[in-house]
Deep mutational scan, measured.
Amino acid sequence: TRVETATETAWISLVTALHLVLGLSAVLGLLLLRWQFPAHYRRLRHALW
């Protein structure tokens, strides 16, 4: 049971790290898009909202 718990903890930390990385890359990508294509971003936002 001790090994299982350790594996579970490792998986949880791995998944958390993955989610953090994905979230950060998504935010960075959005910022980059907004910085590179302001007109396109505004049009996209206008279409979405």
Results as ranks from 00 to 15, higher is better:
15 V>Y: 03
2 R>A: 11
12 I>Y: 07
25 S>G: 05
8 E>Y: 02
2 R>F: 11
21 V>T: 12
12 I>K: 09
28 L>A: 03
44 L>D: 02
12 I>Q: 08
10 A>E: 13
39 A>C: 07
16 T>Q: 04
44 L>F: 14
23 G>V: 08
28 L>D: 02
26 A>V: 11
16 T>I: 13
22 L>R: 04
30 L>T: 08
11 W>A: 00
23 G>A: 14
26 A>E: 03
47 A>T: 02
35 W>N: 15
1 T>Y: 14
20 L>Q: 05
30 L>V: 09
12 I>D: 01
14 L>Q: 05
5 T>G: 03
28 L>H: 02
29 G>V: 14
35 W>T: 15
3 V>F: 06
32 L>Y: 00
40 H>C: 13
12 I>A: 04
39 A>Q: 15
6 A>H: 02
18 L>R: 03
23 G>L: 14
39 A>H: 11
34 R>G: 06
24 L>D: 01
41 Y>L: 06
18 L>E: 02
1 T>R: 10
19 H>M: 01
17 A>L: 10
46 H>G: 12
23 G>W: 07
34 R>Q: 01
17 A>H: 05
5 T>E: 03
31 L>F: 11
3 V>Q: 05
26 A>N: 02
36 Q>S: 15
32 L>Q: 07
30 L>W: 03
5 T>D: 04
47 A>C: 15
31 L>Y: 13
30 L>M: 11
3 V>C: 05
25 S>K: 06
42 R>I: 06
22 L>N: 04
42 R>C: 10
6 A>C: 09
42 R>F: 06
34 R>F: 04
32 L>F: 00
2 R>M: 12
14 L>V: 06
29 G>R: 05
15 V>F: 04
35 W>C: 14
29 G>M: 12
46 H>M: 09
16 T>Y: 05
22 L>G: 08
14 L>K: 02
47 A>I: 11
14 L>D: 05
45 R>L: 11
38 P>A: 15
20 L>I: 11
47 A>Q: 08
13 S>V: 13
12 I>M: 07
32 L>S: 08
4 E>I: 13
29 G>F: 12
8 E>C: 08
23 G>I: 07
20 L>R: 02
21 V>L: 13
41 Y>T: 14
11 W>I: 09
9 T>S: 10
28 L>N: 05
40 H>K: 10
18 L>P: 02
49 W>P: 00
4 E>N: 12
1 T>N: 06
47 A>H: 13
1 T>P: 07
15 V>W: 04
44 L>M: 09
27 V>H: 04
7 T>C: 02
40 H>S: 08
44 L>G: 00
48 L>Y: 14
23 G>P: 02
38 P>M: 15
8 E>K: 07
30 L>G: 12
4 E>D: 10
32 L>C: 00
1 T>H: 12
8 E>I: 01
33 L>R: 06
39 A>S: 12
40 H>M: 14
24 L>H: 05
29 G>S: 13
32 L>M: 15
27 V>Y: 10
5 T>I: 05
41 Y>C: 14
36 Q>G: 15
35 W>L: 15
48 L>W: 08
16 T>P: 07
22 L>H: 08
37 F>E: 05
16 T>E: 03
16 T>D: 00
17 A>C: 10
27 V>E: 06
1 T>M: 14
17 A>P: 00
12 I>V: 10
16 T>H: 05
6 A>F: 03
48 L>K: 09
24 L>P: 07
14 L>S: 02
41 Y>P: 06
2 R>Y: 13
19 H>G: 07
3 V>A: 05
11 W>K: 04
43 R>P: 10
18 L>Y: 03
41 Y>R: 02
41 Y>K: 01
10 A>Y: 07
48 L>H: 05
13 S>F: 14
5 T>S: 03
26 A>W: 07
24 L>E: 00
10 A>D: 02
42 R>N: 09
34 R>L: 02
31 L>V: 09
44 L>K: 03
14 L>F: 02
21 V>W: 00
35 W>I: 15
30 L>D: 04
47 A>W: 11
37 F>H: 00
22 L>I: 14
12 I>W: 07
36 Q>C: 01
13 S>G: 13
8 E>T: 03
21 V>H: 02
8 E>H: 02
12 I>R: 04
33 L>A: 11
46 H>Y: 00
10 A>M: 07
32 L>H: 06
4 E>Y: 13
48 L>S: 08
26 A>C: 12
17 A>G: 07
39 A>L: 13
9 T>W: 11
33 L>E: 10
4 E>L: 12
22 L>C: 12
15 V>R: 02
10 A>K: 08
38 P>N: 13
19 H>S: 04
7 T>M: 14
20 L>W: 07
8 E>N: 00
26 A>M: 11
38 P>T: 10
13 S>I: 13
26 A>S: 09
42 R>D: 15
37 F>Y: 14
25 S>A: 13
25 S>P: 03
36 Q>N: 15
15 V>A: 03
40 H>A: 12
19 H>P: 01
10 A>N: 04
43 R>Y: 03
22 L>V: 14
5 T>P: 04
15 V>T: 03
1 T>S: 11
17 A>K: 02
31 L>R: 07
11 W>M: 09
36 Q>D: 00
12 I>L: 10
